[in-house]
Design a protein around this nucleic acid. Structure first.
Lengths: 219, 219, 219, 219
DNA sequence: CCGTAACCGAGACGGTACGTCACGTCTTGAG
DNA sequence: CTCAAGACGTGACGTACCGTCTCGGTTACGG
């Protein structure tokens, strides 16, 4: 007969089904209404749940939407197409397809906008989305290195820095193309992007060789 | 002796000073409050203007903020530092500094988020911001080509496509670094970014030469 | 050679047509919209006149409507039907018909309501409407007295007091019937009203004779 | 075993105190500001209540003021002064005192004015005010009949018709005197009014006897 | 017959209140 | 202790009129 603090607290336990229903309702509402017209009252109604239940679990609209959107990004996979270029093209196309979905489009940018003034939200985005998807860069690079397509990293610190940089370049380009420039990131665009990412702008230039590198200076 | 539409319409003309005051007040409010807490009533008060005056000239918060933010981007200049790499680094640092300002940070992303569900707003952003700043890419490329750092373009269509691509890569990377990853785009980061943009990821790889290019295929 | 203030001031004289057009437009707007939805901007538009023109001539909505409504009351006439009872019935029916017209209904009560807090407006109503229509009571009484249906008045002061009282009783009953009780003042009602006005409630009562009068006391 | 609608509905019940506070605040605002300057926002503030709470319970200014004013009329009592004439004078003086209060003056006429264009409001006024105060006429008549001052009614239909008529005559005269003519309904006026109401205009006329009644014809 | 002063239309202006909406909190009764 | 329901205080929304103010342009007198 033990009398330790029970792991299950007193009273009626929280409905497990409610969380899933709420996140799904949030995504549905994002599709139909977009961020700014999305209402917590409406989400609660869609989920068949009271507004109080919703506020018991999330602090507000921002937090809820981050969680609802973060789940979408976990669908991304790094396929093995046999070469670094093909792998990049594959994952970039997946990302582009994701950003074509309205719940991801408006949800993502809106929480990023809010995060510019909210340290907590910024951390939540980094934890739930950014850091989690960096796995794609790390996996891709490791695979390319094992294939011999990329040289090994000089050290762990430099490796992390480069991974971050590449992640920002890839994700940033796709996001900017689809959301700011508002043009589709189609196969043609992805091929052009991958080419520049891998070989650089100056490839064919007469100065594109060692001279250029020298001029760039060491890092 | 022409009798075309008279330039002065009937009635009291709109105050020219009001427009400037409103846009400045909008930026000030963005700094203090951010997008979501920004209120048109508050902007009107700051500008010493009635709310109705504001609604007479802009359809809503989105349109107003696009105009207020667009003016910021016109400050960007392409300095001539003597080489393509240095020019890129210079303009990217300027852009990073701009995105470090709170009125640009929250304003820009918020209107992009809204634009995901608003065709009209999307056009306004493209016209007022995106297309206007592409000048930086075009100038930079032309200068680099005249220096011989970059090869001439095969044709006008390809030239436009590449300019768009580069713009998305540069702007996207900086935006993603500063707003999504929420890390500063400092000089070190800018150097690394410029290196990859110019020479590509695969530069030092044993496969980074003609073999890689072949594998990438033509565009 | 006189140098007194000239009766015609310098400059362009006010358009005479405008006044009539504005008052007519006001009545039309009262019919369609009623008092509370009536807008001076709308009246100006209907009259084909600028808002400033309207404000140059009337201080506001109240004053304008009093003038617009007052004109209606001047249509009332006291017909000679040969007896006091028939004359009263005739004029009451005319008044009831007037109060059945929407421009009179809503206009009259609304300005009366406003006048409860506006001494100036109260005077304007008294001058433009009330005092002007007392002529009906005075004419009717004089005619009845010349017919011998009513006794002559004891003195001028008493005569005025009684005329006011009768006016309030007649006009008040019709107004209350049509606007407050919101029932039609039809012929049957008017016959009943006239009978009580002329012979009193207590006519057939066994106490309705001298005893009652004594009980009422002198005035 | 009945399954009728449960008396207690789900959710938080409406605050009972709020209703009283709102109606009192409405009357206070009427006193200070009058009808046209009365603001629902201001009423809400005075009542220590949110504007939304107010709109949850009343459809608008009109409905609210009808209810606020109707309560005032319930204060009217028919005192027993021993004779019909004295009873009438008593209740008329009460009514005059009520109409001297600013909250009744402006409130009553304003809603009547609005009611000229609003069937629903008209019904509300009839139900809440007019029909409710007819009790005074019915009581007074019954008392006078039991005293033998008035003859019994020929039938129920005729009784109702006459009660309505008397109510309109009494209430109408007082309203017109105080609000339209804008003169006080003081004791002297009330005595004169009561005399005419009970004995008629033609009392002392040589033709005021049976001949007049004949001339008036049957109803 | 010509200047000029007051008029006119149009419409922008600073305000005030509107009635609605969503927020996030609270109060209820049931489980 | 949670849940659904729904009322609550708060505060911004976008609209409608208010009454005032510039505009450019138009009359009709009076010198």
């Amino acid at each position: 007969m033990q009398s330790r603090t029970p792991p299950t607290r007193a009273g009626r336990p929280r409905s497990a089904a409610a969380d899933a229903a709420i996140l799904a309702a949030t995504r549905a509402a994002l599709v139909e209404l977009g961020w700014s017209r999305l209402t917590l009252g409406d989400v609660a109604t869609r989920a068949g749940v009271a507004k109080t239940t919703l506020y018991r679990r999330w602090a507000g609209k921002n937090e809820l939407v981050v969680d609802a959107v973060a789940e979408l990004f976990d669908e991304l996979r790094l396929p093995d197409h046999g070469s670094l270029a093909a792998d990049i093209e594959g994952v970039v196309l997946q990302f582009a397809a994701l950003l074509a979905r309205p719940e991801a489009r408006s949800g993502l940018m809106a929480v990023v906008a809010e995060a510019t003034r909210d340290e907590t939200l910024r951390d939540r985005i980094r934890t739930s989305i950014v850091d989690r998807q960096k796995r794609l860069v790390l996996e891709g690079r490791a695979r390319a290195q094992s294939r011999g397509e990329l040289p090994p990293e000089p050290g762990p610190e430099e490796a992390a820095r480069t991974a971050d940089l590449i992640f920002d370049m890839v994700a940033g380009a796709v996001v900017h193309r689809t959301l700011v420039s508002a043009e589709p990131a189609d196969e043609e665009w992805v091929r052009g992007f991958t080419r520049i990412l891998l070989t650089g702008l100056a490839t064919h230039s007469p100065f594109g060789g060692p001279a250029l590198l020298e001029e760039l200076g060491g890092v």
